[in-house]
Simulated assay, not measured.
Amino acid sequence: MTVSDDKPQAAVIGGKSFTAVAINCAAKAGEWIKTKLGNYSRLDIKYSPQDLVTEVDKGSEKLIRSLILTHFPHHSFLGEEGVEPGPAASAKALEDVKDAEYLWIVDPVDGTTNFVHGFPFFSVSIALAHRGEVIVGVVYDPMRDELFLAERGKGAYVHGKRMSVSGEETLASSLIATGFSADQQYALPLNMKGLQALAPQVRNIRSGGSAALHMAYTAAGRLTGFWEIGLNSWDLAAGALLIQESGGVVTDTNGNPYHLGVRNVAASNGKIHDEFIGALKQAEAQA
């Protein structure tokens, strides 16, 4: 990976760049996913009718896992498609590997429903955590060929340019994003309470269907903030570092600091964060 004064220096172990491997994996998986758009052969339902998986999700994860373990065979790997559906299984899968020295956390297609419908808003999300702290995060949008990259302590970048969060200082001037959980019993009703409460208080709300891209857009200043109930580590890990390295704030919906076990997330440019959390609290939509 070429290093220049205005780009982040790659994290390296034994001469191998973590960041270069993450970028290469995301790019290769993204290219392959794009060729499968409108051309997948099997659609399965996981946790609920809104929680979909195709052979493309599984193939993308297999490709990424193989590439990573070729370079770093002793690292641990947590990918969405290697985990049984449902919140309990997700929590247990993270618990089983959370103490790993190096843990790669991967969502091979974040936005599968969009992919299935040909709606061009999905991404590949790859993060690397060192002893529980995310140190590299990559989110790649193959349809726009946009790669969002962050290294801890070295900033976040898109198109090779440094990213920074937006400047809005109030909820009233903010463009906020959210998502709609496949968990219709618990997470979705809470998110709807938050949506109903926040919609009159903000400039507008968007829901693109990829949490990783919502996080990346918040880091890039395209969104002021994002919240969602019932996510997983692979949805959030890379995007959380992108936002933190762009000057923003990531917490749970109660305002507690982000960690890999957070499932209910609130992220913002920082300037609106207290007001944002306060509005969710008032609506009893924090989880």
Rank of each mutant, 00 (worst) to 15 (best):
P8M: 03
Q9T: 07
T19I: 04
A20S: 13
N24V: 01
A26F: 08
A27M: 15
K28N: 14
A29Q: 00
W32A: 11
I33C: 13
L43Y: 00
L43K: 02
P49M: 06
L52Q: 10
E61V: 03
L67A: 13
T70H: 14
F72C: 04
S76V: 00
L78Q: 02
E80G: 11
V83L: 00
E84M: 12
A89Y: 06
A93D: 14
E95M: 04
D96P: 07
V97C: 09
K98R: 13
D99T: 14
A100V: 03
W104Q: 13
D107A: 05
G111L: 08
N114F: 06
V116N: 11
F122D: 02
F122E: 13
V124T: 11
L128V: 10
G132K: 10
G132T: 12
G137P: 09
P142Q: 14
R144E: 15
F148S: 12
L149W: 00
G153D: 03
G153V: 07
A156H: 09
Y157V: 04
V158Q: 07
K161E: 15
V165H: 00
E168C: 10
E169D: 14
S173E: 15
I176Q: 10
I176E: 14
I176D: 01
F180S: 09
S181E: 13
A182I: 02
Q184C: 12
Q185W: 12
A187F: 09
A197W: 12
G208R: 11
G209L: 07
G209V: 01
A211N: 05
A212H: 00
A212V: 02
M215V: 01
T218N: 11
T218F: 08
G221W: 04
L223M: 02
T224M: 03
T224F: 11
E228S: 12
G230E: 06
L231P: 07
N232K: 05
W234K: 07
L236S: 10
E245H: 09
V250I: 15
P257I: 06
Y258M: 10
Y258C: 10
A267F: 11
I272V: 15
D274W: 04
A279T: 06
Q282Y: 08
A283S: 13
A287K: 03
